[in-house]
Simulated assay, not measured.
Amino acid sequence: MKTRAVLSFVLALFLAGCASTRAYDEKITSLTGQLDSLSGKFKLAKKENLNLKRELLLFKKDQDVDTHRFIAAQEVFETDFAEDIKSGDAWARMTDRGLIITIDAEKLFISASDALSDTGKQFLDKIAGFIDRSFAANYIYIEGHTDNQSLAVFEWKSDWEFSFARALNVLKYLTEKRSVDPLRLSASGFGQYRPRAANDTKEGRKSNRRIEVIVSAQKIGDQVKHKDQ
C-alpha cells in the first residue's frame, strides 16, 4: 500500500510538472510572438517616420523656394507699379494667403457702375502681364469690396451683388481679353463687411472701395499631383 501511494504521488508530481512545462512553453511561445509582432510594428513605424521626415524636408524646401519667389515678385510689383503705389491707387503685401494686390475701385471702374473704365482696362492689362511673368500657374482670387454707402449711391439691391459684379467683371476681362486660364480664377464679393478703414470719413470710405487680387501659393498642378498620389 505504501509503495502504491508513493508511486501515485510521484506520478502526480510528474504530471503536474508536465502541465507546468506545457504552460511555460505556451507562455514563452506567446510572448515570443508578441515580441516579433512589436518588432515588426516598430520597424514599420521607423520606416514611416523616416518617410515623413523626408516629406517634411521637401515641403520646407518648396516653401522656402515659394517664399523667395513671392518676395521677389513683390519687389518687381513695387518697381513696375511705383507711380500707382505713390498715388495710392494700388499696393501689394505678403500675407499667409499669398500676395495680395489691392486696387482702388476708382482706378478700375466708371463711377457708380460695375463697368470697367478705359483706364481700368489698361491697368488690368498691366496686372495681367505682371501675373503672367511672375505666377504663370498660381490660383488667383478676385475679391470685391465696398463702403457702407454704396447702395444709396449706386442703387444696387445689395452691397454683396455690387461688389461681386465688379469682381466678376475683372475676372471676365482677364479671361476674355487677356487669355488668363479660367481654371486659375475665381471671383467673390464681400460688400461692406471687410473694411480696411472706418467708414465715418471720406478717406476711409474710399479706402474700402477696392478690388483685391490674391495670388495664392497653390498652383493648378498641385491638386492633380495630390490626387495621383
Score class of each variant (00 low, 15 high):
H145E: 07
D80K: 10
R54L: 11
E143Q: 15
A112E: 15
Q122R: 08
A105D: 09
I220G: 06
D84T: 10
G120C: 03
E26G: 03
N148H: 07
L108G: 02
W91G: 09
G33I: 00
I211T: 03
L15D: 04
E161W: 01
D96E: 15
A73F: 09
S186Q: 09
A72M: 07
A19E: 06
G17R: 02
R209S: 05
V76K: 14
G191I: 06
E161Y: 02
S216N: 07
D84R: 11
I85E: 13
S113T: 06
E83H: 09
S186Y: 06
K27Y: 07
A128K: 03
K225H: 08
L44H: 15
R184S: 07
D96S: 13
I140F: 05
T102G: 01
G120P: 03
K46P: 05
H145N: 14
S216Q: 08
D181T: 09
G204D: 06
R210H: 05
L50E: 13
D200C: 02
L11P: 03
W156H: 09
S20E: 11
F130S: 00
E106F: 00
F9I: 07
S113L: 05
L183M: 11
T3L: 15
L56T: 12
K43L: 11
D89Q: 13
S207W: 00
N138M: 05
A73P: 11
T67D: 14
K219Y: 04
H145R: 10
S111M: 04
T119C: 00
N51G: 04
K126S: 13
R205Y: 00
A45D: 10
G33R: 05
K41R: 13
D181G: 08
E48S: 13
Q192C: 07
A82M: 11
K227A: 12
R133Q: 05
F123D: 04
P182C: 06
N169V: 02
A92L: 04
E75K: 15
